[in-house]
């Protein structure tokens, strides 16, 4: 469970998120909102990449401000642009990166890497330079690099924004198959139809927090009349 209590977030003297309180318990949660409404900032709060100026964020009881390292182990994060998330030149090496950081032996790394490469259909590319993968494959690699660490939660910030329809569907299937609770920021409303909960942001505040159909209805109405 992720618990957000009375959180304010500022960049300089600009308040981005104001007095936010949320308890995230559902298995599939969607975050929507217009550009600049604070979605990415919110997502980054969940794994301690940014810390609240007021209030606190607890992940399974661990305070992101007190133990960011433990929180990052629990919360995997997928960025919008896989190019900035893939940090090693070769596919296989990139998957090893996080595992190595966690101190796993070469043999332990190999077992996990083999399994995840097969699962994401990247096996034939294991020795290829990451920059030669297609956009969809890169995003799959980025997701694989997070999941190989077996996080308890997965947060994704617009994982399909740069992808075509076919790859969006691939990623969507990959998300469906995840065992972990997933919190996903997206503009792709179709992705959210079978989610448990959708939260709509508007200028750093919560505009709607409901089932997908109800929340999206409020969101679309507000955006159309704005």
């Amino acid at each position: 469970m992720i618990d957000i209590t009375d959180v304010d977030l500022k960049y300089g003297d600009r308040t981005i998120l104001k007095n936010l309180s949320l308890r995230l318990t559902e298995k599939r949660i969607g975050i929507v909102g217009s550009n600049g409404s604070g979605k990415s900032s919110f997502a980054r709060l969940l794994n301690g990449l940014v810390l609240p100026d007021q209030g606190q964020v607890l992940v399974d009881g661990i305070d992101t401000a007190k133990n960011a390292k433990a929180v990052r182990r629990k919360v995997g994060f997928v960025f919008q642009n896989p190019d900035n998330q893939i940090v090693m030149p070769i596919v296989e090496e990139d998957l090893a990166f996080g595992l190595k950081n966690r101190g796993l032996s070469k043999a332990e790394q190999a077992v996990k890497i083999d399994a995840i490469l097969k699962h994401y259909d990247l096996d034939e590319h294991r020795n290829h330079p990451a920059h030669l993968l297609s956009g969809g494959q890169k995003q799959l690699l980025a997701i694989a690099g997070v999941l190989v660490m077996q996080p308890s939660y997965v947060v994704m910030d617009e994982p399909t924004t740069l992808l075509d329809l076919r790859n969006t569907m691939r990623i969507s299937r990959a998300i469906d198959a995840l065992e972990q609770p997933v919190i996903i920021v997206t503009h792709d409303l179709d992705l959210l139809s079978d989610f448990d909960r959708v939260i709509a942001f508007d200028q750093g505040r919560i505009l709607a927090d409901d089932t997908p159909s109800a929340a999206l209805k409020t969101y679309i109405t507000a955006m159309t009349h704005a």
């Binding site: 980054r44 990449l49 960025f79 998330q85 940090v87 996080g98 950081n101 690099g145 660490m149």
Partner: peptide, 16 residues
């Protein structure tokens, strides 16, 4: 801008 994102990604992926 990219180097900011990369450094976030290194953090998120447990680089220490």
């Amino acid at each position: 801008k990219m180097s900011d994102d990369i450094s976030d990604a290194l953090d998120a992926r447990g680089y220490d």
